[in-house]
């Protein structure tokens, strides 16, 4: 059994203008120690997915359907008390902006010790020892001193290290990292990512890495999930998705990487922008921007316009695209062949 099994997750926001569907039929699994990347544009529902895994969607959002099985227990049905025991303890989260995630009026040590004490019966002295240990694991210089410092006395990279230390504090099974390096400058980004990778491997922690950086995904994760307008459109082994993307959207994303354009020329881009969630087009949400949804006569294909594509298996990947389905039906790709 997988450690985390998300199936048919449906998240909606009840706004005054009407209901907005932020996640539609999202399913994926995560094994112990596995690293999964979730990629997509801003607004594709990546962060909502992250919060939903912890059942922390705030009003007006709510989980309208589906289940999140963690070690066989459905997080959507657990009582608040039981959820609090899982949060931080078994599933922890790393946020985007290290400047904002630490409480400005508590010292680093106070925050770490408090976190330990909230989940374990432990004396302050022991808690401080554990906190110190974790700070050493994230290679923070002079950790004893850091414990008594306030967040504003530390640099961004240092703070993100502390946040990673806090995420690891209770030896969780899963860490959900929501764009953990976006707010940092490039040199530190690489350091933080390799640190996160190292720690996850060492402690056999499963990682859900949410990002829009395909480069990071390809270096860190084993499997990737591509999201568009609240839906998963492609998932499979990271290497196959990077090397041989099937979905036109994923292909577009990979083509848009700076290294894919010849030097001096303009970068490749996907025409248009992702529609706001309230105005998601019927059929395949990507069809208005898709180069393959027009037929020979220049008309939009009827199935792309009207039918939500079902997943087809192509190699080891699952792809939700009518065009890919046709190709696969005509010329089946056996699993393993693509890589």
């Amino acid at each position: 059994m997988a450690l985390l099994e998300v199936s048919h997750l449906d998240v909606r926001f009840a706004l005054r203008q009407g209901e907005v569907r932020a996640l539609r039929d999202v399913s994926f699994t995560l094994d112990r120690g596995e690293r999964l990347g979730i990629v997509g544009e801003s607004g594709a529902g990546k962060s909502v997915a992250a919060f939903t895994i912890l059942n922390l969607i705030a009003k007006p959002g709510y989980i309208a359907g589906g289940s999140i099985l963690f070690e066989g227990r459905d997080l959507t049905r657990l009582k608040p008390r039981a959820l609090q025991n899982i949060r931080g303890n078994q599933i922890s989260m790393i946020f985007q902006d290290p400047m904002m995630t630490l409480n400005p009026v508590l010292t680093v040590g106070e925050q770490m010790i408090e976190c330990l004490k909230a989940h374990r019966r432990i004396r302050s002295r022991e808690a401080r020892e554990i906190a110190l240990n974790k700070l050493r694991q994230v290679y923070i210089p002079s950790p004893e001193k850091r414990l008594d410092q306030y967040p504003h006395e530390l640099s961004g990279g240092m703070r993100q290290r502390i946040i990673i230390a806090i995420a690891l504090l209770l030896d969780p099974d899963i860490i959900v990292a929501d764009e953990p390096t976006t707010a940092l400058d490039v040199t530190i980004q690489a350091e933080i990512m390799s640190l996160l990778l190292e720690l996850c491997e060492k402690h056999n922690v499963a990682l859900i890495l949410i990002t829009h950086d395909l480069g990071v995904v390809s270096q860190v994760t084993q499997r990737t999930l591509v999201m568009y307008a609240g839906r998963v459109i492609e998932q499979g082994p990271t290497r196959e998705i990077i090397n041989d993307a099937q979905h036109p959207y994923t292909q577009g994303l990979i083509n848009a990487l700076p290294q894919m354009a010849s030097p001096g020329s303009r970068l490749n881009q996907i025409p248009g922008a992702m529609p706001p969630l309230a105005k998601t087009p019927p059929g395949c949400a990507f069809h208005p921007r898709c180069g393959f949804s027009t037929d020979a006569a220049g008309q939009r294909r009827r199935d792309c316009r009207e039918d939500v594509p079902a997943f087809v298996t192509s190699g080891n990947c699952h792809v939700a695209c009518h065009m890919v389905r046709e190709l696969v039906e005509r010329d089946p790709v056996e699993p393993g062949e693509a890589s």
Partner: peptide, 27 residues
């Protein structure tokens, strides 16, 4: 602010978040 989200992610109870995390920031 994100530190409140972070506190919720840590599994703190509402009372603790209110009095220990938010209150000192409104002093």
């Amino acid at each position: 602010k994100e530190y409140v989200d972070a506190a919720r992610v840590m599994g703190f109870r509402a009372k603790r978040i209110m009095f220990r995390h938010i209150l000192p920031n409104t002093l």
